[in-house]
Amino acid sequence: MQDSPDALQDWLLAAAVPLSVIRNDPSGDSWLPAKWRACIAASAEYREVFEQFIADELELGDSVRLADTRDIWFTARVVEATGGAKVYGAGLDPRYRNWIVTGGYALAIVMCACFALEFLGHMHGP
């Protein structure tokens, strides 16, 4: 694609630079290819696209982080709710647990094979 502000926008969107990287280096010195850095330095149009992208990313990141709210009563409610709940398989030796899980899978495979053989038998007739 030819270089243009739209191409820069597409590159920025596709590159998916981690937000932590953008936060640490919003000028892009460490992660923006030299070609784009030169365009941004030379043209106000490119610069506007780039600065808008950075502002949008930071705003989106802040918006999501604000949704990360903690509530001490929530923890208390969850722990209270576990009062009547049991941890499935608690205390079971991991080896036995693995045998049980493997046994379940093996049984499922055998059943599938039986169904498949039955189906093939019907297809080919008596």
Binding site: A67, D68, V87
Partner: peptide
Amino acid sequence: LSAHYNAKRAFAELVRRHQGKIRGLLLR
């Protein structure tokens, strides 16, 4: 500790650590 030693306080610590992001995701 939670699963095999029935330590509810250990599970409470897990909830405390992760509730913010889980609730945030579900809120969205």
